[in-house]
Amino acid sequence: MLINPFKIAKQLREFGVLGMNQRNAEFIQMYNPRKFYQRVDNKLISKRLAIAADIAVPELYHTVEIEHQVPKLRKILNNYDSFVVKPAQGCGGDGIIVIVGRRGEHYLRADGTILTQSELNFHVSNILSGMYSLGGHPDHAMFEYRVEFDPIFKDISYQGVPDIRVIVFQGYPVMAMARLPTRQSQGKANLHQGAVGVGIDLKTGITHTGVQHDEIVHIHPDTANPIAGVQIPNWDNLLRFCASCYDLTELGYLGVDVVLDEHKGPLMLELNARPGLAIQIANQQGLLTRLEKVKTQLDSKRNASERCAYVLEL
């Protein structure tokens, strides 16, 4: 089959598919002022802003800022049975370790492996030296509440924490997907690493098709359960929750990652100033059409609920 790239490009354009170049130039550069990047790139800052704005986040247990604090970790962590270690400025989920319990002196990781105290200390030291941060800048390590995720995704995820990614443009939620960890993604909800992205109908909050490595899938590769038809509880509430994240960051083109905790409901896990494009494949829909509609509403001064209402009526 002879492929005409211009013809494909034209079809994609008609379908409203947003490309990387256009996303960078017309959305990220135009609507995300550099000076606000710290608000999302540094998870400690995002957390602080979220708490100030009454947006629920996983509780922060402890932060390590300098090497000197590392030896004291054992004592501090004794208070917590399970927790998550993260680099404050990490990207793409790199450098995150999930501890679900103890095995004697040692820690038990989510994937069932054992982590010794010295291994954990070494990992924290690596985080501090900037191994996982953008550009290798020195970083802080944060210890926070391990989410006990809502069982709705139990049958269609493999270990790890499934989360929900919502693209919020100027405060209007425009597209959503659930990200389900797989064996391949080593329990991480990161599409680059092989997690499955499942499109969510913006109006109903019901999942439909999924995508893994840019290929459409209908069942979870590890559990073999169908991924479509899952109703996210309290969907309207969750959309409003995401929409209000715009107000605290002032970033026009934002990816909001939310986890559903069994006890605490939706928690804002992190924010992303450069959300990926695979969400379009998961939803079988181009982003541009919706983004263009929102562009016509930029002058209206609506609050988060009103913005969600506008989106739901589209």
Partner: peptide
Amino acid sequence: GYRLTELYRFKDL
């Protein structure tokens, strides 16, 4: 516009 690899990436759409 689109990158050449994106034409392949979004082909399913």
